[in-house]
């Protein structure tokens, strides 16, 4: 395994500094170093489990079970530390990409470590609760890995060099123009336009955000209403309709942007709280084991 760390660099100095120039994602980091380590670990466990005859039967309470349990608990705590590592900008040399890579692959290896630790004895108790929570955390993490590797390109395509602030600014600009252009309209036509102006681009709730569907969109409603309307001056109405459809396009872009960002983030709202629940259940599991086993 030592050869996997061959490329580790010497201590950073002022003149020759460590610089991340390699262009590779967290999954491919260092030629799949952590995938190899984690895969090797899983293989080792599966093979040794089959070879070692634990009496009376494989169980979390055997020496073999304790070993796996200790490794698993240690890993869980270390994997949780990523949240701290990510935010603590110390000045020494570390790469968050390497951490993420290790986090993903070692986290996946917990499926084997945790499950083989149980000796396949599952039931309705606090011990299995810890295992279930762990599996849920891993599943949510798996979702994270999938969206992280599929959605960024869509996010980039959709925003088309615009920033989120610019998207909001574009919508505000259309609102201001709409406000001026809607002045000559009849009150009957003005009402849906005013409703569209009052619309908060962030409103709509979590489901709308994630699905990207906004059935009660006031701008779309105003477009429909004005399209059907025959009152007010036709030219003025046409101008407003034109602006409304431009605003709709801008809104669609912003909503798609928010949708992809929400999809990229939503899993963290499951992954992180479940991790804390897991740590609580794990503590209960460990304490109960030592008190009552």
């Amino acid at each position: 395994m030592a050869s996997l760390f061959q490329r580790r660099r010497g201590k950073a100095t002022q003149t020759e500094r460590v610089r991340e120039r390699r262009h590779e994602g967290f999954l491919r980091y260092a030629n799949f170093r952590w995938a190899k380590i984690s895969g090797g670990l899983c293989l080792l466990i599966i093979v040794s489990y089959a070879l070692i005859d634990v009496t009376p039967r494989p169980n979390g309470g055997s020496w073999y079970g304790y070993t796996l349990g200790t490794i698993g608990a240690g890993l869980i705590l270390w994997l949780t530390a990523l949240g701290y590592r990510k935010r603590k900008m110390t000045s020494d040399h570390w790469s968050l990409k390497a951490w993420t890579s290790a986090h993903v692959y070692l986290g996946l290896s917990l499926i084997v470590i945790g499950t083989w630790h149980t000796g396949f004895q599952l039931g309705w108790n606090v011990h299995t609760l810890a295992w279930v929570l762990m599996m849920l955390v891993i599943l949510s993490g798996l979702y994270g890995v999938i969206v992280y590797s599929t959605l960024p390109a869509a996010l980039s395509n959709n925003r088309d060099e615009m920033t989120q602030m610019q998207m909001l600014e574009a919508i505000r600009a259309f609102d201001r123009q709409l406000h001026a252009a809607a002045q000559p309209l009849t009150p009957q036509d003005t009402a849906p336009v005013l409703a569209a102006l009052d619309e908060d681009p962030f409103a709509g709730g979590i489901m709308a955000r994630l699905s990207g569907r906004y059935p009660h969109c006031a701008t779309a409603a105003a477009l429909r209403a004005l399209g059907a309307s025959r009152s007010s001056d036709a030219e003025a109405r046409e101008k407003v309709v034109g602006l409304l459809s431009q605003k709709e396009v801008a809104l669609a872009r912003l909503r798609q942007h928010l949708r992809i960002r929400a999809l990229l983030e939503i899993w963290l709202y499951v992954h992180v709280p479940l991790t804390f629940a897991l740590i609580a259940a794990l503590s209960a599991h460990i304490i109960s084991v030592f008190f009552y086993w």
Binding site: R19, F26, S91, H93, W94, K97
Partner: peptide, 25 residues
């Protein structure tokens, strides 16, 4: 400058999206 670990923006990128390069590289 003066931070032994090198540019923080690149170190802190969780996915490896950020790189620092010169055009010839």
């Amino acid at each position: 400058k003066g931070i032994a670990g090198g540019p923080a923006c690149v170190r802190a990128c969780p996915t490896g999206a950020a790189i620092r390069v010169s055009p010839e590289e």
